[in-house]
Amino acid sequence: MTTFKLIINGKTLKGEITIEAVDAAEKEKIFKQYANDNGIDGEWTYDDATKTFTVTE
């Protein structure tokens, strides 16, 4: 398992979430669903070196 981080830079929601997953593709799906469930629609980036997804509205 690898630890992945999501950084949220939303208009109404900001924060960080850290979760373990098998791979980045699995985690991306979970993070995007979390963002969608919380009304966050923005630009996504991924840094493989730090295993960090960022979504910015």
Results as ranks from 00 to 15, higher is better:
I17V: 06
K5M: 07
D41W: 14
T2N: 04
K14W: 15
E16Q: 05
D41G: 10
K14M: 12
Q33G: 04
T2A: 09
F31C: 12
Y46Q: 00
I30F: 09
L13W: 15
T2C: 15
I40T: 03
D23A: 05
L13A: 06
N9V: 14
V22D: 08
A21I: 14
K5C: 14
K32I: 10
T52P: 00
D47P: 00
T18K: 06
T56H: 09
A21N: 11
G15N: 09
V55T: 02
A35G: 04
E57V: 15
I7S: 00
E20W: 14
A49V: 10
L13R: 03
T52W: 01
I40A: 03
T18N: 06
D41F: 13
K32Q: 12
F53T: 13
T50L: 05
F4Y: 12
V22P: 10
I19G: 10
I8N: 00
D48E: 08
N9A: 04
L13Q: 11
I30E: 05
F31V: 12
Y46G: 00
E20L: 13
K11Y: 10
E43V: 12
L13P: 03
K51Y: 07
G42C: 13
G39K: 03
T45W: 07
T3R: 04
F53V: 06
E28I: 14
T12D: 12
F31Y: 04
D23L: 04
K32M: 12
F53C: 13
D37G: 03
E43S: 07
Q33D: 07
N36Y: 13
A25M: 08
D23S: 08
E43Q: 07
G42D: 03
I30K: 05
F53G: 01
D48T: 06
D37S: 08
K51D: 08
E57T: 11
K11Q: 14
K32C: 13
N38G: 03
D47R: 00
T2F: 14
W44D: 00
K51A: 06
E16A: 05
E57A: 09
T56V: 08
D47W: 02
G10R: 02
D47G: 00
K29C: 14
G42H: 04
N9R: 07
V22Q: 09
G15A: 15
T50A: 02
D23T: 09
G10W: 14
E20F: 13
K51L: 07
T2W: 14
G10P: 01
G42Y: 13
K32H: 08
D23G: 04
D48W: 05
K5L: 11
T18W: 14
T54L: 05
T2Q: 08
V55K: 04
N38Q: 10
F53M: 04
L13N: 12
E16W: 11
T12R: 04
D47H: 03
T52I: 05
D37F: 04
E28Q: 05
D48G: 04
T3M: 08
T12I: 12
A35W: 07
V55I: 12
K27D: 03
G42V: 10
A35R: 03
E28M: 14
F31E: 02
T18R: 09
T18H: 10
T54K: 03
Y46N: 00
K27N: 13
I17K: 01
Y46M: 00
E16P: 06
T50W: 01
K51S: 08
Y46I: 01
Q33T: 05
W44C: 06
E57K: 04
T50P: 00
E43H: 10
G15S: 10
K32G: 04
T3L: 09
N9G: 04
G10N: 04
L6A: 01
K32E: 07
F53N: 02
T50V: 02
I17S: 01
E20M: 13
T50F: 02
T45R: 05
V22I: 11
K51E: 03
A25W: 10
N38P: 03
T56K: 07
K27H: 13
E26C: 13
A35C: 14
I7E: 01
V55A: 03
E57D: 05
I8H: 02
E20V: 14
I17R: 01
N9T: 08
I17P: 00
E16N: 04
K5S: 08
A21E: 04
D37T: 09
I30W: 13
I30V: 10
N38A: 11
L6P: 02
W44V: 03
T56F: 11
N36T: 11
K32R: 11
K14P: 09
I40K: 01
A24K: 08
V22K: 10
K51G: 06
L13M: 12
K14E: 12
D41Q: 13
K51M: 09
E57F: 14
E16I: 14
T12W: 12
G39Q: 05
E57N: 11
T3V: 10
G42W: 15
Y46D: 00
K32S: 05
T54H: 09
L6K: 00
G15Q: 13
D47T: 02
K32T: 10
I40Q: 00
I7Q: 03
E20G: 07
G10Q: 03
K5A: 03
D41M: 10
K5W: 14
Y34V: 03
T54R: 04
L13T: 11
T56N: 05
E57C: 15
T3N: 05
T18C: 15
Q33H: 04
E57I: 14
F4V: 06
I40W: 09
I7T: 02
A21Y: 10
D37V: 07
N36S: 12
N9I: 15
I8L: 08
N36H: 12
A49D: 10
A49H: 09
I19E: 03
N36M: 12
D23N: 10
I7N: 01
T54M: 07
T52H: 05
T45I: 06
F31I: 11
T56W: 11
E16D: 04
A21R: 04
A49M: 08
E16H: 04
G15Y: 15
N9E: 05
T2I: 14
T50M: 02
G42F: 08
G15E: 13
K11M: 13
E20P: 07
I17H: 04
D48K: 04
K5R: 08
G15D: 09
K11C: 15
G42I: 08
T12S: 07
K11H: 14
T52C: 08
L13G: 09
T12L: 12
D47N: 06
T12P: 08
I30N: 02
Y34I: 14
T2E: 08
T3F: 14
G39P: 02
V22Y: 11
A35E: 02
L6V: 13
G15V: 15
I19W: 13
E26N: 13
A25I: 09
T3G: 04
Y34C: 13
I40E: 01
I19Y: 05
N9Q: 09
I40D: 01
T3Y: 10
E43T: 10
T50E: 03
K14Q: 12
T12F: 14
A25D: 11
F31M: 10
D41N: 12
V22W: 12
E43R: 07
K27S: 15
D47I: 03
T3W: 04
A24Y: 11
D37P: 03
N36G: 07
D23Q: 07
Q33V: 05
F4P: 02
G10T: 15
Q33A: 13
F4G: 03
L6M: 04
G42P: 02
T12N: 11
D47S: 02
G39V: 04
D48A: 08
I19S: 09
T18D: 02
W44A: 01
D41E: 11
A49W: 04
A25N: 08
Q33K: 14
N36L: 14
T52D: 01
V55P: 01
W44N: 01
T3P: 03
D23H: 08
D37K: 06
A21H: 08
E57R: 11
F4I: 11
I8R: 00
A25C: 11
A35F: 13
I30T: 03
E16V: 11
T52A: 02
K29D: 09
E43G: 03
L13V: 13
N9H: 05
L6G: 01
K11I: 15
I8S: 01
T50K: 02
Y46V: 01
A25R: 06
F31N: 01
F4S: 03
T45A: 07
T2K: 06
